[in-house]
Design a binder for these strands. Structure first.
Lengths: 229, 229
DNA sequence: GGCGTCAGACCGACCGTCGGTCTATAGTAC
DNA sequence: GTACTATAGACCGACGGTCGGTCTGACGCC
């Protein structure tokens, strides 16, 4: 086989790219190391030159994903023209915009990622995202509490709980996607949007804001996401 | 090898018993089918006669665990002398009592179950518990809302979120157990108990009750749990 | 004799290892 | 500047070991 040397960063990025595509198409367990190196045009030896194990590759991939997606939302957290409540709302608005933009790709990714047999993959990605997001959200809550924009007894613990609650959407989104696949987009959109709205209400209540202050969805988002592309 | 025939229910229960012990000692992935049948004194053939796969065994085990532990808490949910808030508090009190009673065994189980590499095992058990508990909690919230004991816009969705938030204790408990193992019981108990208290506050707020209404911990529980036995 | 129950040899998929090859670059001699 | 050598480290692919799962068939109870 023709040997093609490349810079290490390029190679490992290529391996991560291939792994990401395959993991999100078939899941972690259903992707073999053999599959990944075939896609990347490399050998077993090269693979284990870059990653200590298949698991280590997953960890690196999760970290990269978390870093990249958080970078997209960082601007909303830093926007000086917004107060704490405004930042939270901007965060949700930004994440909806991203979701709609990438809807076709995200839908297939989610459909795999949220399948029960892919817990390991899901959990790794969530863990990495959580580690990065937790201090940022905690800081937001702390600032907001100091400015009396809302009321939280313990910013870190409450940030932890907010991030935890969002995981109900693993199941909710999975159900919505299945329903949409069966042609029942209206029903699926209704379910997803209502649950997002209630998530907003939950946050309102946890922060002692009036119901409806935090808008986790704009009307029409779920429908746009489910049928975009 | 001497053949010993037994009633199917006995046999499958034996397999579940052995699997449970082994899974909770070493984790799911680190327990082989070989290990289980050796412990049960059975053959591969017998194992696959009772369970279609190792995964199916895990599912059955999770269902049995969920059923058993929910049965312990059922009385609190049915107690007619209590109002909705009282039932929630009784639920927490009952689960604390159980935790302290079984503390030594639960500690080692939790230590394994909550390790990151055992997500699959954890997730199965949680899923089974959740499926059984969700309708019961939703019903409790619905009743309580109808009686104006508290205020929830959507009992099912809110029950879902309450059950989701409790999963922060996978991580919190894991950290507390590690700390306690390193001799720092005081610090561990403080962390665990404070987080439980804040969980109670979170529920208060979600149900629009005054902070402190729901008592997810009695003072001293964490310490009792961490050093019992 | 037939069916439920069980034994254990066997299979194949995969992860990870290991000895070794090949190429780019640095250093050195001239 | 050129040629030659030495070193690093990117890369190869056959092989080993583990483990979930299958298959053939036997044993015992109705």
């Amino acid at each position: 086989m023709a040997r093609a040397r490349k810079a290490p960063e390029i190679r490992s990025a290529e391996l991560l790219d291939c792994a990401q595509r395959l993991f999100f198409e078939r899941g972690y367990d259903n992707t073999t190391v053999e599959d990944i190196i075939r896609a990347a045009g490399l050998s077993k030896g090269a693979f284990y030159h870059y990653f200590a194990s298949k698991e280590a590759l997953l960890e690196a991939l999760a970290a990269r994903l978390a870093r990249d997606s958080l970078a997209e939302l960082q601007p909303m957290l830093d926007d000086p023209s917004l107060g704490p409540v405004g930042r939270l709302n901007a965060l949700f608005a930004g994440s909806q915009r991203l979701n709609v933009e990438l809807a076709p790709q995200l839908r297939t990714t989610f459909a795999v990622l949220f399948r029960p047999e892919n817990v390991v993959l899901f959990h790794r990605v969530d863990l990495a995202a959580r580690e990065l997001a937790l201090p940022l959200i905690a800081d937001l809550l702390k600032k907001g509490s100091e400015e009396d924009a809302f009321d939280v007894p313990d910013p870190l613990a409450f940030a932890d709980m907010l991030l935890q609650i969002r995981l109900i959407f693993r199941d909710v989104m999975h159900r919505a996607l299945r329903q949409a696949d069966q042609g029942n987009i209206e029903e699926a959109a209704r379910l997803l949007e209502e649950r997002l709205r209630l998530y907003g209400v939950a946050i309102d209540r946890l922060l002692k804001l009036p119901d409806g202050t935090i808008k986790a969805v704009e009307p029409g988002f779920a429908r746009a996401f489910l049928q975009a592309g």
